[in-house]
Structures are given as C-alpha cells and as structure tokens.
Design a binder for these strands. Sequence first.
DNA 1: CCTTCTTTGCAAATGACTTGCATTTTCAGC
DNA 2: GCTGAAAATGCAAGTCATTTGCAAAGAAGG
Lengths: 129, 129
Amino acid sequence: MTKAREAALEILRNADEPQTAAAVFQQAGNSCDLATVYRTLHYLEKHGYAESFVLYCNEHGTERYYTALSSGNSGSSAHRHWFHCEGCHRFIEIGNCTVNSLAKEFEIEHNLSVSRHILYFIGRCSDCR
Amino acid sequence: MTKAREAALEILRNADEPQTAAAVFQQAGNSCDLATVYRTLHYLEKHGYAESFVLYCNEHGTERYYTALSSGNSGSSAHRHWFHCEGCHRFIEIGNCTVNSLAKEFEIEHNLSVSRHILYFIGRCSDCR
DNA sequence: CCTTCTTTGCAAATGACTTGCATTTTCAGC
DNA sequence: GCTGAAAATGCAAGTCATTTGCAAAGAAGG
C-alpha cells in the first residue's frame, strides 16, 4: 500500500458520505496528481477497499462517487445506498434496503445472474425542502 | 412537434429497450445532427414524452438511456426499471418494483422529499451466463 | 548497491454531451 | 397562401469527467 493509496483510503474511511475523485483530490491537499487519484480509486475498488457508483445531479452533472468498505481485500462489507439532496448536495444513507431480495427474485424468475445493482434517491432534505 | 422530434419519439416508442442518443441517431439514419438528437431528447424528457437514466456499463462506459412514456392524456405510464446484461447488452424490464414504497417510507422517516429514484441491475442474462 | 517491477506526474487524448452562432423551419396571424 | 417572429437545426468548437502514453521516481528483493 503506497502513500497515495493509504491517504485516499483514509479520506474515504473518514468521510460519512460518498466522495468524488475531485473531492478526494482536494482533501488530499493536492499532494498528488488528479490522475493518480483516479488510478488510486480504481485500485481501491478493484481490491475490495471501496465501492463506487455513478450519480447524476443537476448541478454537478454525472460523477462517480466512492465509499470505503469496512473490511478490505475482497472481504466485502454491506453495499450501501444513498439519498442525495439537490439543495445542499449532502448524502443520507438509505438503511434497511430490500433491493437484494428483489434482485434474488428477479434472478430466479429470469434464470439470470445479477452481479450488482444501483439504487439511489434524489430529492430535497429536510433542511432544503 | 417538429420532424426530428417526431422521429426520435417514434424510435423510442418502437424500442423495447432504453436507447442512447447515439442509438437514436443511428436509427434515424443520420437524418439529423447528433447535437439535434441530444436537444430533441432533452425536449422529449422535459415535456413528459420520455424519461432517462444514466447507466454505467463496463463495455460502453457511462451513457444516458431514454425510454418513451405513454403520453396520452389518459394515463402516463409508470416509471420503469431495467436489468442490463453485460454480455449482450440487452435490457430486461424489472417488473413489480417496490422502490416507490421504500422511497415513501424514507420520506416520512427523514421528513424530506424524494423527487426521483434510480434503480437498475447489472449482470448476465440467461443466454450469456 | 543494482536490477526490475510498480507507481506517479505531466500532458495530451478520449468520449459523451453542450453550446454559440448563422441558417432554416415552424406556425400563428393576416 | 403569405409573412415575419420565434423556435429548431447544422456545424464547429467547447466543456468536463475520466483515461492513457510515457518518462521519471519509488519500492522490493537479491
């Protein structure tokens, strides 16, 4: 684990919301190149330290957001889902998600395999309504 | 409704899967500019003729996919969700989706408003397993 | 140390999508 | 049917997140 990777992972672990590459770059104090941040995030995801999803927001456009997974090296912790506020751009975790069982049903019904799923909500939080 | 918009809407209505701007452009036989296709799809979505979502696929990257909404004054069709096969890149509709009720619960629980949600599955269909 | 493999920085490239602007279409009102 | 203002289109150039080529810097093992 190199210094840049350690730093990025620490940033993701300390964050309570999904982070974009640009956000990680900024929090790292520009201590490394943005291209390195992208490569680092790919590395972290590939090796099971983080997961990501692509989210579209009116104001920020389409960006990939990363979250740390609790246990690294492919020992996966639970996949999470988020609500994104279009006002303040904060994220709130959607707990208690039933998508997994929905995916399982769908797999059986269609005799196929679902390797991942994406779910998120967009709206306005209680402060921004 | 101009010719280009009529054509794009017809393409979406005849499609049984979500279509990208590039796909609509191609099916339109390059009869208009790609920029016009983008503008047209924005128009259709803004005016309730279509809806869209952004999906990431390993092979095709991040793209926006459009589906027609049945825009008769009688009934606008419900928002739909899709499974995307990473092998053949076909889409299969996920029927019977419980996300709406999940969103409603979440709204009440957090005193916020969810204006839209994104859900899709990625995997391999029965032909591509 | 020295060699080799990996990672990084920098700059340039990519690809989906957007936009400025001049030209064409559309369409309501004659 | 004509006409003119408003809207739509084509083309080219721009934007923006993300990726990649390549040479230099760093790590790891002998």
